[in-house]
């Protein structure tokens, strides 16, 4: 299977959610602020549970939060 990376729109979604801070999002989904920072920077791919948790925090479907950056051939 070809390698692909996962991008995210968390920064944009936070902005649209009344400039929600990373700390506020972290508290909503039950992780540390550093984990949210790492996810935003693409340094950490969250578990399915956390990914859905983030989507629920913004009240949007999962694919609006995360997307495939390089489509496999």
């Amino acid at each position: 299977m070809a390698k692909f990376s996962i991008g995210n729109n968390i920064r944009k979604l936070r902005f649209n959610a009344n400039e929600m801070t990373q700390q506020e999002l972290a508290e909503k989904v039950g992780v540390t602020r550093q984990t949210i920072v790492a996810i935003e920077k693409g340094k950490y791919s969250p578990s399915l549970e956390l990914a859905f948790g983030i989507a629920l925090a913004f009240n949007v479907p999962l694919e609006e939060v995360f997307y495939v950056e390089n489509n496999p051939p």
């Binding site: 992780v31 540390t32 984990t35 790492a38 969250p46 956390l50």
Partner: peptide
């Protein structure tokens, strides 16, 4: 700093 460990930790 909150001393909690999440899934990444």
């Amino acid at each position: 700093e909150p001393d909690i460990a999440d899934e990444r930790d």
